[in-house]
Design a protein around this nucleic acid. Structure first.
Lengths: 399, 399
DNA sequence: CGTCTATGTCCAACTAGTGAACTCTAAGCT
DNA sequence: AGCTTAGAGTTCACTAGTTGGACATAGACG
């Protein structure tokens, strides 16, 4: 921003380097920082002093039982991040610190027909409550991640057609929430955030290329490519639900026929069980019955798995990820659905692509999206946010 | 490599910055360099002197009719890059300089059944001939890009099952060629290089996310995601040819049924015309006949287009690229095949993904792969290769 | 209790970029 | 033609910032 290529920028880069190292490791001694960053001990000494004076890090006199090492960690009040997830039936909020620790988390039911204003009111109150519970100053919010169950237009930030929250179409959630909370808000759809959450905290740890398949009322995928969420130039990447499996299959809400969604999503699958199991079944209920041994539900879940597997096979041929994580209610079915998925993938994907693929259930269950929102806030924050003291002074100004 | 975070590394980064600016623009005055890089005029002055002494750039006293501006450009003999493409029936070699200019290019027929040793002999001779034609010192080769028509194992660099060059399976082409030429060789498959070539020089200029579909004896895709070739963790991304279109379709060489390839690749399509048009048709011939109005060939090409469109629609739903470029012999058919592709995409892809997609024929024809190999060599080179004088002294040592 | 060793700090040396002053050259004006 | 002007490139003194080495510190080990 100031001197793009020199000296002070080098210093800044080194500051960020140290902050990142500390953030990733939780806490480090200066000597360790020097080793991991490659900087000299003297430089680290200077930088740590500067950061300490700025309030970004804390130096705890001596904790480990070594010779004498002062461990450096991000100061507890250096900043917090907030994740908010609007789901089909619920609202979840999580508060975390910069060391990737979740400090508080809560969810409450949300009426599908609620207006966006009502939703934001609820979210705002819940955020306030959790922040108070953690006892941190509101001015320390470094960023907010927001998850919404529908496509976000990349340029305008407008929420597109969401069959899930009809009252929200056309709103600009990030904008609105930023005005309410006064901090930067980053928004993404639920599938992408689920992918991010599972990658940072769940079944995708250590993997740089993965697809997170979320099966709920629709079917969507979040793609992580080379460690980053891939949204595509138009922002609609990952629409695995509308891959065509059968050109003359059932008509889908998107207007085509035989989309994967028509074989796997709750709204199309549940009716199959109506005559035998009654009308007020939910996907959760089907999964529970299947686990208890109900043959009809088992069959339906296996069929869903096979179809998802076909879609995953296509995805696998095109992208060759190293892991596929299954999320949503359906993941609770475990092997009942994963088995058929793997079988389908093995059958339809080319062997060299399928060989190194692992298909796993999500480890975070319904929390994947909120935690992903938290991770989004953390990753969008950049390491420099902590340096300029904007957090300790006041909330960042609008731009 | 030496001092990862400081001072000298900053200097090096600034050197690279200048080199990159010059390379991209072709030639610049020092003042322009200062403006585009953000460095101060004094620094640029020093850096240019250093680069000039090192032989990396040339300073032509005064060429433009301004006040007095010395234009800086990469010295003509700063380095050259070589692209080599082994195709089904031919071998192509191109020589370019660091300013993205193609200096020489030639192709010759290659026998499908030739051994890899024979192929390399031919390639080596052709490379020598072209280099001599350009009159540059062999020691100035900065890098070589190599294209092979088959999957390359990421870790070992081994060429996997290629139905096109049977004698090559199990060889390590990059390794072998490096031993022969004595410089770093970067290898990739033809579809990926075609994508790269079209992105740098052809129909993909200015686009950061594109898919290059190559229809020849097989069907493959090269994916460019965020400006870089995406190979996937296992190196087999882009296998669009084996997306399943019809579970009970024709048996494919991969062992599945109804793969896109069975509806689009030459080996499956040409037999359809045997009884009506004779047995020694090639894809080129079919395209030519179609353009001349032959209804059977037109129909076949349109059908191929529709099926490719289905595959592209799936790809589009998953990845949402902004452009799809069609390569291979089939691209010569122009609207005869693009029309049906677009129609299929419009029908099967979700509208929001299809809306901003453009489907174009490749602009480079059969040259896409060699030029892509050239681009690969350029991009893998990094901007620092030019700095350490390794090129001016001698060929880089093996490692 | 002395020695050892790794940690953190301080200082002088050195590297490298910057602003300001300066020179140079061609264009434009009188 | 001669003067002025303005942008280009260079030089120089200054400053920011990293580094290696010397030094102080404090627990571990014998």
């Amino acid at each position: 921003m100031e001197t793009p290529g020199s000296q002070s920028s080098l210093h800044r880069a080194n500051l960020e380097r140290v902050v990142r190292a500390v953030r990733l490791a939780g806490s480090l001694t200066q000597a360790e920082i020097a080793r991991t960053t490659g900087l000299s001990a003297a430089t680290v000494s200077n930088i740590v002093r500067e950061l300490k004076d700025g309030g970004t890090v804390e130096v705890t006199p001596t904790s480990a039982g070594g010779r004498r090492a002062r461990s450096v960690s991000l100061s507890g009040d250096a900043g917090i991040v907030i994740g908010i997830d609007f789901g089909h039936t619920h609202l979840r909020v999580a508060v975390g610190n910069l060391a990737h620790q979740v400090l508080a988390e809560e969810s409450e039911p949300l009426d599908v027909d609620a207006s966006s204003a009502q939703g934001f009111d609820r979210a705002e109150r819940l955020v306030s409550r959790l922040i108070e519970a953690t006892g941190v100053d509101r001015g320390k919010i470094a960023g907010v991640g927001l998850g919404v169950p529908g496509p976000i237009d990349v340029e305008s930030g407008t929420l597109g057609s969401s069959a899930i929250l009809p009252g929200w179409i056309g709103t600009r959630p990030a904008e609105e929430l930023r005005e309410r909370l006064g901090v930067a808000v980053h928004v993404d759809n639920d599938a992408n955030l689920g992918a991010l959450g599972e990658m940072v905290w769940g079944s995708g740890k250590g993997v740089r290329d993965l697809a997170y398949i979320k099966v709920a009322s629709g079917v969507g995928a979040g793609l992580v490519i080379d460690g980053k969420i891939y949204r595509g130039p138009g922002g609609t990447a990952g629409e695995i639900g509308h891959i065509t499996l059968d050109e003359s299959g059932p008509v889908c809400r998107c207007g085509n026929r035989g989309c994967l969604e028509t074989f796997a999503a709750a709204r199309y699958v549940l009716p199959l069980l109506q005559s035998s199991h009654g009308t007020d079944l939910t996907m959760e209920g089907v999964v529970r019955l299947a686990r208890d041994g109900d043959p009809g539900c088992r069959r339906v879940i296996a069929d869903v798995g096979r179809h998802i597997g076909s879609g995953v096979a296509n995805l696998c041929n095109l992208l060759n990820p190293s892991r596929v994580v299954l999320g949503g209610d359906l993941a609770e079915a475990g092997e009942l659905v994963l088995g058929p998925i793997r079988e389908s993938v093995g059958r339809y994907a080319i062997p060299s692509a399928a060989r190194q693929l692992s298909v796993l259930p999500g480890a975070l269950g319904g929390r994947a999206e909120v935690l992903g929102a938290l991770a989004l806030a953390l990753s969008e924050m950049g390491d420099s946010t902590l340096l300029d003291g904007s957090l300790t002074a006041a909330a960042p100004a609008f731009t």
